[in-house]
Design a protein around this nucleic acid. Structure first.
Lengths: 121, 121
DNA sequence: TCCATAGTTCAAGATGCATTGAACTATTGA
DNA sequence: TCAATAGTTCAATGCATCTTGAACTATGGA
């Protein structure tokens, strides 16, 4: 018997800008979102992201993305399929997702990327 | 004698998307950025933000915004003036700042919208 | 010179985030 | 029914963030 339920997620009115930005501010989660946005498939199975971290770690990051309202999770069999909540994000934060995804595709030079400025008064 | 130095900050190539998103993901910092973007004046004195937190706390948040490359600090006398690094942010992350600022100006008001819809129907 | 103003720096404590391994649940296929 | 697969939940750990008060620096004005 094939079940098709979906995991609970915040609805449109509950999306919060600071939460969404925080969800997007982690390199692993940014990679996940980029991949979801870039792909031809609207849905991607969780296991697809195993190159980005351990099973446990991915459950954590995907959970964060879901509870921030960035992704949706549909369950089918033993698999879970993630999809971007593009319509909701666009409705609530017009242009934000596109700007983030486009910027993520266009990284800075590797040598300087992780360096933070030593900005002291 | 009037000094006009500026505090050190990362340059364009060093701006990192995850860092910038993280800098923007805090409500206090989002409020600061929104106010800077509201654009009455291109520069705003630090003390202007004292309603958002203590002196110490603001030094912390403004320091974070600066080291992420979101704002610039110019020193004049005993004051420090903050400005958005709009050109740099737009060059590196096109559309991002505008989307964030516009979204911040447009918080969710689900109850109001529902009341209006009911009144209109 | 002395004082007030504007803001920073430091240390410490509370809280929260990220990561891990082990144990667990649920579903499918044989 | 049994085992494999896919992913979650838990507890613990280490590290980062946020916030605070006290002490400090630097500038400008009287």
């Amino acid at each position: 018997m094939k079940s098709m339920r979906a995991l609970p997620q915040p609805d449109l009115a509950q999306l919060d800008l600071a939460n969404v930005l925080e969800a997007l501010s982690d390199p692993t989660r940014l990679a996940i979102v980029s991949r979801l946005a870039a792909g031809d498939e609207p849905e991607v199975r969780c296991g697809t992201f195993l190159d980005l971290g351990s099973k446990t770690n991915l459950a954590y990051h995907l959970g964060k993305l879901r509870s921030a309202g960035v992704v949706s999770t549909r369950i089918s069999g033993t698999s879970r399929f993630m999809s971007l909540r593009r319509a909701d994000l666009d409705a609530r934060f017009p242009g934000l997702l596109d700007a983030v995804v486009a910027s993520a595709r266009r990284p800075a030079k590797a040598a300087t990327r992780r360096r933070r400025a030593a900005a002291a008064g």
